[in-house]
Simulated scan of single mutants.
Amino acid sequence: MSAPRKALIVTVALTLSVIGLKFLVPLVAPIIPADRPHEFANGLGIRLLSIGHEGNRVTWYNEIRNGTGSDITLNLTSTCRHGRPPQESGPSGTSLEGAESIVIPWGQTHGWSESCPSPDSGRWWVYTMRLSDPTGEHRFPPLTLAGRAH
């Protein structure tokens, strides 16, 4: 294989990696069906309670359970995509206002909802939550929930 061809293959591979990391990773790492809870390795659990469509918005209701062994403060943001392949639906409330901070005592649960613009009901959605601990004690990958809004 010639040097220019190797350089082209490496350039294409790196470009696809960057594109994949920016656009695909939030959609695939990890994807949780809407009817299943998810627990991170440190004991923090997320469970989708419902997806609802009303007017021109789709709303996600979540339960966050703190099983980490100590009180935790979380900054939460989210994004929504719809259709196949997923397309941006528009900014969520936290995207417009910035991260929402919540404190969850150890052993307790906290409800959290978020909404995004929605073209109509019956669509498939992927909803990506980003949780960060401002103390840096806990790290969480983006969590993507997938389901249909009615």
Rank of each mutant, 00 (worst) to 15 (best):
L96E: 03
L16R: 07
E54Y: 06
G98I: 05
G69M: 11
F23W: 13
I64Q: 08
M1K: 13
H82E: 03
G67D: 14
V25K: 09
L16F: 12
L44C: 09
E100W: 11
G52Y: 06
V25R: 09
H150N: 15
A7M: 13
I19K: 04
S118R: 04
G69I: 11
W124G: 12
R47K: 15
Y61G: 11
L48R: 14
V103E: 02
H82D: 12
P30D: 12
G122M: 10
R81K: 02
C116D: 02
E63V: 08
A7Q: 06
R65F: 03
I102C: 05
S50W: 09
E88D: 04
T135Y: 09
F140Q: 03
A41G: 01
C80L: 09
L16N: 11
T128Y: 01
R123Y: 02
L8K: 14
R130E: 09
S89C: 07
S113K: 15
R130A: 00
H138Q: 08
S78A: 09
Q87S: 00
H82C: 05
I102Y: 04
W124I: 15
R123I: 14
L44K: 15
N75Y: 11
H82I: 04
P37G: 12
G147S: 00
N75L: 02
E88P: 10
T15P: 14
N62Y: 12
P4C: 07
G45E: 10
E63D: 08
H150P: 03
A3H: 13
I102M: 04
A99K: 02
I46K: 05
L44V: 08
T144R: 14
L27W: 01
L24D: 08
E54A: 02
N66F: 04
P91L: 00
S2I: 13
V10H: 10
P91S: 06
L27S: 05
P142A: 01
V103F: 11
G147P: 10
A13M: 08
F23A: 01
S95D: 00
I9T: 09
G83C: 07
N42V: 12
L21C: 11
R148M: 07
E137M: 14
P141M: 04
M1W: 05
N75R: 07
R139F: 14
T79I: 12
G107A: 03
R84M: 05
A29R: 12
T109M: 08
G52T: 06
L27E: 00
L74S: 06
P4F: 01
F40D: 06
I64V: 02
G20T: 10
C80P: 08
L74W: 08
M129Y: 08
T109G: 08
